[in-house]
């Protein structure tokens, strides 16, 4: 009998799952972690729901950071943001393996292990998405001076890009809205940022863009037009570097909606 721990699809959720799985004392081969709940259930398995628990997750994270190193922790944090069915179990196995190594800090380079490799791959994928969004996010200035932006990313990168923008624009009020997950990162001028969940999309309709913003929008579009060299024109390369999925929120690729 295998006991499957179904945890919430977040770093806290997965780390709580790791705590519970270890704490069950069933032996590592008899437990498994899962994030997706709507999956087909397997025979001869016992399913346990794990509620995310900040305290337990913190304990696991502290152990990971001290015993396996910051790099391994970063890998897990990034990987947990990526939608993948096997990530929770891979993170669990990676922790188990790392804690059994003489020097746990070696774990992050141990790509010969399939679980570490999966976490590494997911981390790389999420980092690429996050890094792209750091450039492709477009803010619009509202009448009240707040900068507003919308994203629609495959991975849950809001928590990864928000610190970057907090550092970049500390004296601005801004908001980044993740349309797919109905989450938002909100930053107050001179303060820190917070993440809000279950934000309704309706509030977007009530917002009005300032007149100055239209002016900068036009300036940017004309800059974007004039900076390309006609005799080097290469739409395929442009498409490769900047696929269509990113363009729906970038003002230079569309006519103004609002």
């Amino acid at each position: 009998m295998i006991r499957v721990f179904q945890c919430e699809d977040s770093l806290t959720g997965i780390m709580t799952g790791v705590y519970m799985a270890w704490d069950s004392h069933l032996g590592h081969q008899n437990v498994r972690l899962e994030t997706a709940c709507d999956q087909n259930m397997e025979l001869f398995c016992e399913y346990v729901q794990v509620e995310p628990d900040l305290l337990r997750a913190e304990k696991v994270i502290k152990t990971v950071r001290t015993r396996l190193g910051e790099e391994a922790y970063e890998m897990m944090a990034y990987a947990s943001a990526c939608p993948h069915a096997g990530k929770a179990d891979a993170i669990y196995r990676m922790i188990v393996l790392g804690l059994h190594l003489p020097d746990g800090k070696n774990i992050s380079g141990m790509l010969t292990q399939p679980d570490v490799r999966l976490v590494f791959e997911l981390k790389r994928k999420v980092w690429h998405i996050a890094h792209r969004y750091m450039g492709f996010v477009r803010f619009r200035e509202l009448e009240n001076g707040v900068l507003l932006s919308e994203i629609d990313a495959e991975a849950d990168i809001l928590a990864l890009i928000a610190p970057h923008f907090s550092d970049r624009l500390p004296l601005e009020n801004w908001l980044i809205y993740d349309r797919r997950r109905k989450k938002a990162a909100v930053h107050r001028a001179g303060g820190g940022h917070i993440l809000l969940e279950e934000v309704d999309e309706e509030f977007m309709d009530r917002l009005r863009v300032s007149a100055e913003d239209d002016c900068y929008d036009a300036l940017w579009k004309s800059f974007h037009r004039s900076i390309g060299i006609e005799s080097r024109s290469n739409k395929q390369l442009q498409m490769h570097m900047l696929p269509m999925k990113f363009r729906s929120f970038m003002n230079e690729f569309q006519d103004r909606k609002i």
């Binding site: 450039g135 492709f136 974007h224 390309g228 290469n234 390369l237 442009q238 570097m241 970038m250 230079e252």
Partner: peptide, 12 residues
């Protein structure tokens, strides 16, 4: 950080 790509495929 690349913020956009122009029609010739070069990064802006």
């Amino acid at each position: 950080i690349c913020h956009s790509f122009s029609a010739d495929g070069r990064c802006i």
